[in-house]
Amino acid sequence: MKRTAWTILFTFAAALGAFAQSNEAMDQILAANALQCGKAAYLLLVASDNIAEDAGDARSFDLLRELGWIGNKATAETPITISEYAYVLMRAFGMKGGLLYSLLPGPRYAFRELVDRGVIQGRVDPADRLSGQRAMHILGRVLDIEEAGG
């Protein structure tokens, strides 16, 4: 488990190209039992090159809000649900979804898409909070898919 986390951490750091600077942020993400929207925004927007790594949680969350990828009720401190995380992930990486996702883009069909592709695995409810470790695992699988050419 630890080894997997570190592999993903290195994959992530390589994607950022700056292991040292992101180390502290990564530690906080990995330690989170319920990942907050701000931290999820930072993780996904930096990994997808949508924001600079020195942006921080607050700025990342503001960008997420501006882009309209997160609900109006959410704050940077609100724990993110796995379906919301799936939606931000798909938007951040420009992933194509199914027919219903194309017609009605949102967390529901993003979650379905990632379950169908095997990115989200195991017993899971769309409304579940997710730990930082799980968020990293999910991100790692998407990076693998991107590397394999979608």
Binding site: T81, S83, L100, L104, P107, R108, D125, P126, A127
Partner: peptide
């Protein structure tokens, strides 16, 4: 179903 709204804390379809 079509709205995609997370009405229940469960998956349905």
């Amino acid at each position: 179903v079509l709205s995609g709204a997370p009405v229940f804390a469960a998956d349905f379809g």
